[in-house]
């Protein structure tokens, strides 16, 4: 009945004799695997400090952080969707549309509050469409609907803006996206605030537990009476809201809204989540993974720039890192299977 659980006594005992006390070895490997991304990130940063004297300057670090802020913010939303076994391909176009909507609202109203509300609401609306159509349209996978809204949001943004960037953002938005307090970029405070909020919600709220349950085993979540549909919709709405907030940061930094914003952001954010160590299979990972992954992408890009590596080569490097991260996830599943066999044969 449990194909995943190889617990026939025969194999179990054979393995336990063969490998003796390897239970602790498996456990240690799993722990190392869990710490992997952070260790690699720290090693990378130290290495770069040696390779380039410019790396540790305040200006360069500030650059990395402000460039990473948008990816990090949207990756946190993407992470919540991936936790539920989903994927949100629309985040980049969603961000572009939100920035255009914000710029248009600013042009016609001059109101800071309305601009901020419009951008975040625009993001949330696209997210809500994703979630509602996925759940109530009974789609087999969110890939399809978010691919559709990727196209629709992009088209709408191009249509509304005539395909051109629209200059002008309120001072407040410019300050958040581009300003800094004592050298710390304002966008960093937004990212940190959202990260803290998500971490607390995931850990302490029932909703957070339900996210993990739905991602871990959707059928069981239904059996246990968890409102799976509402949980799924909430994940896409949050991803959309994050895209809206990302638009706020990017528009603030560039003092414009543009239909070309967020190009390939879906790939960057999915890569960040996976590289950071969350599982693409759902149900595993925390907000820190999205942050570590986003910073890793920022650092790799920055490093290749500093070391004068061709910009096209960056895409290849990021791709290779994704493959390594996914293989690490596969290895983790394999080790857990080994652990189950050892448990069946072992001391208990």
């Amino acid at each position: 009945m449990h194909a995943k659980t190889p617990t026939t006594p025969k194999t179990g005992i054979a393995v336990s004799q063969e490998r003796g006390a390897s239970s602790t070895a498996v456990r240690t490997s799993l722990k190392l695997l869990g710490a992997g991304p952070v260790v690699i990130l720290v090693a990378l940063i130290i290495l770069l400090g040696f390779l380039s004297p410019y790396f540790f300057t305040g200006r360069n670090l500030g650059n990395i952080l402000s460039q990473t802020a948008v990816i990090a913010l949207v990756a946190m939303g993407q992470h919540i969707v991936i936790l539920t076994r989903g994927i949100d391909l629309s985040v980049g176009s969603n961000l572009a549309l939100a920035s255009v909507v914000g710029a248009l609202v600013f042009k016609s109203t001059d109101s800071t509050v309305l601009v901020v509300v419009a951008m975040i609401a625009s993001g949330g609306l696209v997210g809500a469409i994703n979630g509602l159509v996925y759940v109530y349209g009974r789609l087999p996978h969110p890939f399809i609907i978010t691919l559709a809204t990727l196209s629709i949001a992009k088209g709408t943004a191009l249509e509304l803006s005539d395909g051109r960037a629209i200059q002008g953002m309120p001072d407040f938005v410019r300050a958040i996206g581009g300003g800094s307090i004592h050298g710390v970029p304002g966008s960093l405070f937004v990212v940190a605030g959202v990260a803290l909020l998500f971490a607390v919600m995931a850990k302490t709220m029932v909703w957070g537990r339900w996210l993990y349950a739905v991602g871990g085993k959707p059928e069981a979540a239904l059996q246990m009476g968890i409102p799976v549909k509402r949980v799924l919709i909430s994940a896409y709405v949050i991803s959309g809201l994050c895209a809206g907030l990302g638009a706020l940061l990017l528009a603030g930094r560039t003092d414009a809204g543009s239909p070309l914003f967020g190009n390939l952001l879906e790939l960057d954010t999915i890569a960040a989540v996976i590289i950071g160590g969350a599982s693409f299979l759902g149900g595993r990972g925390h907000i820190g993974h999205a942050l570590v992954g986003a910073i890793m992408i920022g650092v790799i890009r920055n490093a290749l720039n500093l070391l004068n590596v061709d910009i096209f080569f960056q895409l290849i490097v990021i791709g290779v890192v994704i493959v390594i991260a996914v293989e690490a996830d596969v290895l983790r599943n394999h080790l857990e299977g080994r652990m189950r066999v050892l448990q069946a044969a072992g001391q208990t």
Partner: peptide, 10 residues
């Protein structure tokens, strides 16, 4: 039930 309705990740 036979499939236990357990969440592996919890």
């Amino acid at each position: 039930y036979q499939d236990l309705a357990l969440f592996d990740n919890l």
